[in-house]
Design a protein around this nucleic acid. Structure first.
Lengths: 116, 116
DNA sequence: AGAATATTCAACCATCTGGTTGACGATTAA
DNA sequence: TTAATCGTCAACCAGATGGTTGAATATTCT
């Protein structure tokens, strides 16, 4: 699969990373890994209002992290991997990652968990 | 492929992704790819104040995307790959629709972290 | 047609963010 | 010792963000 990266990805990366910066939105993405969902179903496990979840979905869609398609009165949400690939590609340029660094991850978690 | 979804990681991912969401901070990271730099030198190509750059560096350091070390009156900044690895790993899990062994990973981490 | 369901819109609010400036402490150089 | 350099701190400001509520718009069900 080819990923076309324009010379100026700044705006896209702004949107993608700030979309990913919110834990509710990250959780939504994980939920959508399982299956496509309607807005109401996405909102179900959260304790915030439906309107708030609708806004989150709008932000994810505008960052192209999800796609939304209306069928009847239901709006279906599904993952869109394009934006994730753009961000991932950018990050690869910074770190030359070739594999998942579990040692690094462990060290990070250890340090983070100490702070409790 | 593993994806990491642990309550302990939420704060870390919040910090990492919101640090990456700002174009100035992303540019700083790219600059540090070349070489370690002093705060003043990091600030040089930007048109914002030194104090603003200093704040950006603080945010990057608190997200563990950079390390800062003071030598004399100069504070040296260098990339830290730990946080980048965390974010990259999390994203990789979302970009690919493969089996997710969450329980296995948590068990692995728990066991590994106990060993000290 | 009338009622229920799915989702968004609009207005509003508190808090966070990225920026500024000026003063300040610490370190090095003259 | 005095002056210059490096960086942070504190107070402040405008605009963005994430949340709320109530009304509005479509669509489907009875």
């Amino acid at each position: 699969m080819w990923i076309i990266i324009s010379p100026d990805m700044t705006d896209a990366l702004d949107q993608i990373f700030s979309a990913l910066a919110d834990p509710t939105r990250r959780q939504i993405l994980v939920m959508l890994l399982e299956d496509d969902m309607a807005v109401t179903d996405v909102a179900e496990p959260f304790e915030i209002s439906l309107a708030a979840v609708s806004k989150h979905l709008g932000i994810l869609a505008s960052a192209k992290l999800i796609q939304q398609e209306r069928r009847g009165r239901v709006k279906w949400c599904k993952l869109d991997t394009q934006a994730m690939n753009i961000a991932w590609t950018w990050m690869q340029g910074l770190g030359q990652f070739e594999h998942i660094d579990l040692d690094g991850l462990e060290a990070f978690l250890e340090e983070t968990l100490k702070k409790d």
